[in-house]
Write a protein that binds this DNA or RNA. Sequence first.
DNA 1: TCATCATTTCAATAATCGTTGAACCAATGA
DNA 2: TCATTGGTTCAACGATTATTGAAATGATGA
Lengths: 125, 125
Amino acid sequence: MNSQAEPLCEESHSDRRDRRKPRVDEAALGRAAELFAALGDPPRLRLLALLAQGPACVSDLAEDEQEGMSTISQRLKVLRSASLVRRRRQGKHVIYALADQHVVDLVFNALAHASEAQVVGKYKE
Amino acid sequence: MNSQAEPLCEESHSDRRDRRKPRVDEAALGRAAELFAALGDPPRLRLLALLAQGPACVSDLAEDEQEGMSTISQRLKVLRSASLVRRRRQGKHVIYALADQHVVDLVFNALAHASEAQVVGKYKE
DNA sequence: TCATCATTTCAATAATCGTTGAACCAATGA
DNA sequence: TCATTGGTTCAACGATTATTGAAATGATGA
């Protein structure tokens, strides 16, 4: 569509206001932002990358990350409230896993993109 | 692949450590997190949604958002350092635009996903 | 039931982040 | 050159967020 159209500074403001009607759905925007915010912290993203290799319980994750279980549990809580991970109980353990394939893709894409972007920068162009 | 394999709690730790070799690239992870973090704030995400309709200068964005230019400029700075937007000068104006199609897709996908997710929750399942 | 292990919650602290207005810089036109 | 308009930077403040250890909860097996 017109996503790379002319800038608007030169038009009259009444024209602009007419064309810019489709205000974003604030609720959707808030949920999207919450999801991104949960992803936007290296320790939490690392946790997701770990879970991308398969489900794991809190104590295993804690050992992998060399952190206390409390810390890991708190991070998982944030990821869970953003619906990025699911959990189920298995005996004494609580097993966490990525919520669905969509999340798997998101994590892999982000890491792949960030890996290439460093050199020439797909984004910088 | 094995992304939904069995949890690891029951295996021996030496086994686990062997299989879990592919540690994530910390640098890439940091950049990915920075990108997500920039997206993870409703006002900034709204700004990107606005820019998805086409390039615009700071004063126009400020008017659309009913905010001071300083505030908008600060938000744009964060988006720019995450390589999400580009800018160019045009006379007195500075025109901002989404960095590339990848970003356009990301914003639209996130909003689309967040719009549907509210009811039954693709992520919750 | 008691003891133990795995996990979560709580509360306090430290660290980070967003906003604001004022000062500053850049481009233009008189 | 000066005044004006558009944009950025700076510094301070308030608000949010992450981390930590201690206390609480849940599940298990003796």
